[in-house]
Design a binder for these strands. Structure first.
Length: 739
DNA sequence: GACAATACTTAGTATATGACGG
DNA sequence: CCGTCATATACTAAGTATTGTC
C-alpha cells in the first residue's frame, strides 16, 4: 500500500521554517536522477598504522585466545570463550567457512609480524608514488612501471586478505543470553579536551570602549562567543540572551557588576585572534601537519580502542565533548547557552570488574566505576543543557553495533511477512466505534504510507517545536475535498526531526479523510490531532501484532522494500557500469524522498555544476583529439609497421577508452546532480535531497546481492567504512538474497 | 498510568582529507 | 607542487523506545 505510492514519488516540499515559503509547485517527477559517488578507496585502505606497543600487545593478546594460560584473563572469561568456540564450530556449519580457517589456526601477529605489515604498507605507498611518476614519464620506463603496478596490486590484495583474517566474524558466533552485551570489557577511559589557556596579553576585550581584563572563566566563555561571530547564530536574540545570561554566571561579581549589556561588548580582538589561528593552521607546512596527524593517530591508538571479549574494537566517540555554546537546530529555545566543561568527577566509567580500570586524569577521580554488562557504553556523563545522558560507545563496525543493526533488518523482514494482515487490520479499525482505535488506525496509515516518524511527546520550551505522527497538531494539516485532480487530499506542513520541514499533499482513502476531519472538529490549531493516542499506546498495539514491531520498523521496512523494488525495476544486467550506478542512485533517491532526507545545499552548488559542465566539454575535446591521434597513429603504423608504432597505437587506444569512460561517468554525474537539484528546487529553494542518510534504513544485503547480480564491484556502492560496518552482510549475502 | 530516566539509533553540519587538474 | 573541490569522517543534536519509579 505504502510502497506503490512512493514509487510515484509525489513531490514533497521540505525545508526549514525560517526559509521562504515554498511555491508548492507540484512538478512532474523528474525521470532521471541519482548521485554518483566517486569512491576513492585505495589510499584509505593503505592507512599507515602507527603501531604503539599497546596495540601490539592487544593484538597479541587477542590472537592468543587459544592459549589462555599465557594471559591474565580470568578462568571465567577463557572458559566462556572456549565454550563459544565450540558453539561457533557447530552453529556456523551451514555458513561459508572458508575464511575462518586461518583464524582458527591461531596465527599470531607478533611484534615482528606487525612491523613487517607496517613496512609492507609503506612499500605500497612508495610504489604508488613511483607509479604515479612513471605514468607521466617516458614511454621506455613503462615496463618497469608495469611491474611495480603489479607489485602494488599484489600488496594491496595481500593487505586486504590480512585485514579480512583479522576481522572478528561475530556473526558466526552464538549469541549471548538475553540482555548480556559482553563478558569482558577493558578501555582507557575517555579523552578529555585540553584545558583553556588564557588569552595572550596583547589581545583585549573591551567593554564600553574600555579594556577589561576578564577572569579566566569569563574569558573562556567570551572566546566561545567571539569564535562564532561570523555565524548568524550570534545575531539571534534568543542566542544572545541565553549566552549573555550564562556568561554572566561565569563572571566574578565585579565583572557582573560592570558588564550589563552585551551590545557594549567588543570581542573584535578575540575574534581576530581566532581567525588568525585558523589561518596559521591552514598555512602550516607539510611537516607540521604530519606531526599533528601523527599525534592524533597516537591518541586514537591509546584511547580509540577497547578490548571487548578478546577483540580489539574501535570506539566511536572516545573524546569528551568540549565546552562551548550550545547550537540547537531550528528555533531552539536554549541556543546560545553554555555547554559546560566536563570533569572526570562527572563521568561514570563502565567496564569489567576484572579489567584494568581506566586511570582518571592526574588529581582527579571518576564519579563512579560500574560493571554493567547489560549495556554497551564505556563511559557516560550528564550534559547540562537538557540534562540528558551522553555516552561513549563503540564504532559502527563493532560487534555490538553490527549485531543490533542486523537484528533491526531481521525485524523489518518479519514485518514484510505480516504487513498485509496489519494493513487489513488498520483499514478495518478506521471504522471502529472507539475513537482511540480510529486515531491509531489513521496514525498507522500515515506512518506506513508516508514513513512518518512516531512522534514522541516533548517537553515544551526545552526543545525546538517539532512533531512526528502522534504529536501532529491541527495546524499542521489542511484537508482538501478535491485538489489538483485528486479527491480527499491531506496537506501536511510541519517541522520534523532537526526542524526539517515536511511538506506533502497526499490523496488518501476516503475513510481516512473523513476521520481526519472528524479528529479536527471543535479543535484549535494548537490542539493535538490525535488526542487519544501517543507513541506508547501505538507501540503497545504494534508489539501485540508482531513481536518487536514498533513504529520505526515501518520506516525500515518501507525504505528497504522500496530500494529492492526500484533496483529490480530500474536496472538491467546488460547496462554499462555507469548506467547501473545511475539506476542504483535513482533507487536510493526514491528512498530519500520517502524518508524526507535533506541537507543544506553546498554554498557552491551552481559553481560546481558549471565546473562539471566545463569539465565535460573539456573532456569531449580531449576525446576528439585522442581519437584523431589514434587514427593518425594507426595510419602511420600501417604504412611503416614499426613495433614502436604498434605500442603507440595501443596506448592511444587506451587513452581513447579512458576518455570515453570518464566522459560517460561525468555525464552520468551531471545528470544525476541536475536531477537531484530538480527534485530539490521543484519543492524548496534551499534544501537538497540527501540520499546518503537513508543508509540507516536500507538492509545492506539488498545492495550486496544487487552488486553480485549486476557484477558491480561493491566498492562502487559502499566506501571503506561502510564496508566495514556491513561486513556481516557482505560476508553472508548470496545473490539470491531477498529482503 | 504518568512521568522521568536510561539507552541506543538516526541525522544534519562542520571539518579533515586526499584526488585531481593546472 | 599547489590550490580547489568533492568526499569521508568527526561531531553531537535530536529522535525512538523501553524501563524504572512513585
Amino acid at each position: 500500500m505504502g510502497t506503490e505510492d512512493t514509487e510515484e514519488a509525489q513531490v514533497k516540499t521540505k525545508k526549514r521554517l525560517t526559509d521562504d515559503e515554498a511555491s508548492n509547485a507540484k512538478g512532474d517527477t523528474p525521470k532521471k536522477s541519482s548521485e554518483i559517488k566517486t569512491l576513492m578507496l585505495s589510499s584509505s585502505e593503505i592507512k599507515t598504522l602507527m603501531l604503539s606497543s599497546s596495540e601490539i600487545k592487544t593484538l597479541v593478546l587477542s590472537s592468543m585466545k587459544e592459549d589462555p594460560d599465557d594471559q591474565d584473563f580470568t578462568s571465567e572469561r577463557t572458559g566462556v570463550k572456549r565454550k563459544r568456540s565450540k558453539e561457533e564450530a557447530s552453529s556456523s556449519s551451514t555458513r561459508k567457512k572458508k575464511k575462518s580457517k586461518n583464524r582458527e589456526q591461531g596465527e599470531e601477529p607478533s611484534a615482528a609480524a606487525l612491523k613487517d605489515k607496517k613496512s609492507g604498507q609503506e612499500r605500497v605507498k612508495e610504489v604508488k608514488r613511483e607509479v604515479k611518476k612513471e605514468e607521466e614519464g617516458e614511454p621506455k620506463k613503462m615496463k618497469k612501471s608495469k611491474e611495480q603496478v603489479e607489485e602494488a596490486r599484489r600488496l594491496k590484495i595481500k593487505m586486504k586478505e590480512e585485514e579480512e583474517q583479522n576481522r572478528w566474524r561475530w556473526w558466526e558466533e552464538a549469541k549471548y543470553e538475553d540482555g548480556v552485551k559482553w563478558k569482558f570489557l577493558e578501555h582507557k577511559g575517555p579523552y578529555f579536551p585540553p584545558e583553556f589557556e588564557s588569552l595572550p596579553a596583547n589581545v583585549h576585550f573591551y567593554y564600553n570602549g574600555q579594556v577589561v581584563k576578564l577572569s579566566a572563566a569569563a574569558e573562556e566563555v567570551a572566546l566561545f562567543f567571539a569564535q562564532m561571530l561570523d555565524h548568524e547564530y550570534t545575531t539571534k536574540d534568543v542566542f544572545r540572551e541565553n549566552f549573555f545570561n550564562d556568561w554572566r554566571k561565569e563572571m566574578t561579581s565585579d565583572e557582573r557588576q560592570l558588564i550589563q549589556d552585551l551590545n557594549k561588548c567588543d570581542f573584535g580582538e578575540l575574534h581576530a585572534m581566532h581567525k588568525a589561528k585558523v589561518e596559521i593552521r591552514k598555512n602550516m607546512s607539510k611537516e607540521e601537519k604530519l606531526v599533528i596527524k601523527q599525534t592524533n593517530q597516537k591518541m586514537v591508538e591509546e584511547y580509540g580502542f577497547c578490548l571487548l571479549d578478546h577483540h580489539r574494537e574501535r570506539i566511536g566517540n572516545f573524546k569528551i565533548e568540549p565546552p562551548g555554546l550550545f547550537r540547537g537546530r531550528g528555533e531552539h529555545p536554549k541556543q546560545g547557552m553554555l555547554k559546560k566543561r566536563i570533569q572526570p568527577e562527572d563521568v561514570i566509567i563502565n567496564c569489567s570488574r576484572e579489567s584494568k580500570i581506566p586511570e582518571p586524569p592526574a588529581g582527579h577521580r571518576w564519579k563512579e566505576v560500574r560493571h554493567d554488562n547489560t549495556v554497551t557504553w564505556l563511559a557516560s556523563w550528564t550534559e547540562n543543557i537538557q540534562g540528558s545522558i551522553k555516552y561513549i560507545m563503540l564504532n559502527a563496525n563493532s560487534k555490538l553495533k553490527g549485531e543490533k543493526d542486523w537484528e533491526k533488518y531481521e525485524v523489518a523482514r518479519k514485518l514484510k511477512a505480516c504487513v498485509e494482515g496489519i494493513r487489513r487490520q488498520y483499514t478495518q479499525d478506521l471504522k471502529s466505534k472507539q475513537m482511540g482505535t480510529r486515531q491509531r488506525a489513521v496514525a498507522l496509515y500515515f506512518i506506513d504510507k508516508l514513513a512518518l516518524r512516531a512522534g514522541n511527546e516533548k517537553e515544551e520550551g526545552e526543545t525546538a517545536d517539532t512533531v512526528g505522527c502522534c504529536s501532529l497538531r491541527v495546524e499542521h494539516i489542511t484537508v482538501h475535498q478535491h485538489l489538483d485532480g485528486s479527491d480527499f487530499v491531506v496537506e501536511f506542513d510541519f517541522l520534523g526531526k532537526d526542524s526539517i520541514r515536511y511538506y506533502n499533499k497526499v490523496p488518501v482513502e476516503k475513510k481516512v479523510f473523513k476521520n481526519v476531519i472528524l479528529f479536527m472538529e471543535n479543535k484549535n490549531p494548537g490542539d493535538e490531532l490525535f488526542d487519544r493516542l501517543n507513541t506508547t499506546l501505538l507501540n503497545k498495539h504494534l508489539s501485540s501484532l508482531m513481536p518487536g514491531l514498533t513504529a520505526k520498523v515501518f520506516r525500515t521496512y518501507n525504505a528497504s522494500i522500496t530500494l529492492q523494488q526500484q533496483l529490480r525495476r530500474l536496472s538491467n544486467k546488460s547496462d554499462n557500469p555507469a548506467e547501473k550506478l545511475l539506476s542504483y542512485n535513482r533507487a536510493n533517491r526514491a528512498v530519500a524522498i520517502l524518508c524526507n532526507h535533506q541537507r543544506a545545499p553546498p554554498k557552491t552548488f551552481d559553481q560546481s555544476m558549471a565546473n562539471l559542465q566545463a569539465k565535460i566539454v573539456a573532456r569531449k575535446e580531449q576525446l576528439a583529439l585522442a581519437k584523431t591521434e589514434l587514427k593518425q597513429a594507426k595510419k602511420e603504423n600501417k604504412a611503416k609497421g614499426d613495433p614502436k608504432l604498434q605500442t603507440l597505437v595501443e596506448r592511444k587506444k587506451k587513452a581513447v577508452e579512458r576518455c570515453e569512460e570518464q566522459l560517460l561517468k561525468m555525464e552520468v554525474q551531471a545528470t544525476d546532480r541536475e536531477e537531484n537539484k530538480q527534485i530539490a528546487l521543484g519543492t524548496s529553494k534551499l534544501n537538497y535531497l540527501d540520499p546518503r542518510i537513508s543508509l540507516n534504513y536500507l538492509d545492506p544485503r539488498i545492495s550486496v546481492a544487487w552488486c553480485k547480480n549486476m557484477d558491480v564491484p561493491l566498492d562502487k556502492i559502499y566506501n571503506k567504512s561502510q564496508r566495514d560496518k556491513f561486513a556481516w552482510a557482505i560476508d553472508m549475502t548470496e545473490e539470491d538474497f531477498e529482503f
